Simulated scan of single mutants.
Amino acid sequence: MAAVSTPALSQDELRLRDRLLEDLEHRGNAVVTVAPEDAEPGFCFTAGAWWKHGVPEAVVIGLPPRMGPVLLDAYVDRAAMGERFLPGVLYRDFFDGVPLTFEHVSQQHYPQYFGSAYVLYPDGAFPAVQIIVPTPDGYWPWSVDAPAGFDQWQPVLTRTGRPESWTPEN
């Protein structure tokens, strides 16, 4: 059997991988935060949830800077304990009074929204979900009455760019 080789990582990539692995060992989870730039919203994502716990990596886009990592930590903690989150279902117990939902992330979005995770998964073979949060007034990015530009501030990372699992009756 021939040995499998992976592309060599740069020194920066090796440092990033080491930092992510250290976070996984000490915290059980690593979160990477990307600051907003120009008209693009900031976002954060997990790196290593699949590796360590066998749960999908997750991304959240457009939340205030301190909210995203807290939400991702809560997701990984709960998922690592065996709780499963179904796309399209409303979950009302992450934030007081604010529901959220999950959606599968299409692999076409992995390079942009999970780029640093490739130091752990060079072949990009990991499942991922997006955690979607409505406005404080309850408008989802796809809502007709959502504030102008909200769908750009929190894009839906499915293949179609629309919710594909949405079950609003929950």
Rank of each mutant, 00 (worst) to 15 (best):
A2V: 15
P7C: 12
A8K: 04
S10C: 06
L14P: 01
L14W: 03
R17N: 01
D18F: 07
D23C: 12
E25I: 00
R27K: 12
N29Q: 09
A30W: 06
V31D: 01
V31Y: 00
V32R: 01
T33I: 09
E37M: 13
A39S: 13
A39K: 10
P41G: 14
C44Y: 08
F45G: 02
F45N: 13
W51S: 03
K52F: 08
H53N: 10
P56Q: 00
A58M: 12
A58W: 02
I61Q: 00
L63T: 07
P64T: 11
P69A: 01
P69G: 03
L71H: 01
L72T: 06
D73I: 03
D73T: 01
V76E: 02
V76M: 06
D77P: 05
A79Y: 05
G82L: 11
G82M: 08
E83R: 07
L86K: 14
L86F: 15
G88C: 10
F94N: 09
D96P: 02
D96T: 07
V98M: 15
V98Y: 03
F102C: 11
F102D: 09
E103R: 05
H104N: 12
Q107D: 15
Y110N: 02
Y110L: 11
P111R: 09
P111Q: 03
G115Y: 08
G115S: 13
Y118E: 07
Y118H: 03
Y121C: 00
P122L: 09
G124I: 02
G124Q: 10
P127Q: 15
A128P: 05
Q130G: 11
Q130W: 09
I132N: 00
V133L: 09
P134V: 02
T135V: 04
G138N: 10
W140G: 00
P141C: 12
W142H: 15
W142E: 09
D145Q: 08
P147M: 04
P147D: 12
F150M: 08
D151I: 04
Q154W: 00
Q154H: 08
V156L: 15
L157G: 05
T158G: 07
T160A: 14
E164C: 02
W166T: 06
W166G: 01
